[in-house]
């Protein structure tokens, strides 16, 4: 199941619709990294609301996405992690250190906008 990626201004929004296989996740990573380069995006939002579980492979892929996007100048926000999913993740020992998280898509966009503004202010 391919994850749809939406381009909205400077941002890319990937909203996961259903459970993903490892291959789907890897494909999402490739597609996002390629598009960040192509569109010179400033931000990436990955919406995981629909995921009812996140294991080490999924977390690793999200970390890779954030890392590679950053190298290309984009900030990544993971949005929509469910309470139970978060609880299982921390018990597994999985964290998203150094990666921004937000409650939902709206909050994720707010975060990126703020970041953009801070950057402009500093410049």
């Amino acid at each position: 199941m391919e994850v749809p990626i939406l381009k909205q201004g400077d941002y890319l929004i990937a909203s996961i619709q259903s459970a993903l296989t490892d291959a789907d996740l890897s494909q999402l990573r490739e597609a996002l990294v390629e598009r960040v380069g192509r569109f010179r995006s400033r931000g990436v939002i990955v919406d995981v609301t629909a995921l009812d579980v996140m294991d080490s492979f999924a977390v690793r892929t999200l970390r890779d996405i954030a890392h590679m996007a950053r190298l290309r100048g984009a900030e990544t926000v993971i949005v929509g992690i469910q309470p139970e999913v978060a609880f299982a993740m921390v018990q597994l020992g999985l964290t998203l250190k150094g990666i921004a998280t937000a409650l939902d898509l709206e909050e994720g966009l707010n975060f990126l906008n703020r970041r953009g503004k801070e950057r402009v202010d500093r410049a």
Partner: peptide
Amino acid sequence: VQTVEAARLLGA
């Protein structure tokens, strides 16, 4: 510590 981390995963 886990609670703090889990809350952060939710964006808080």
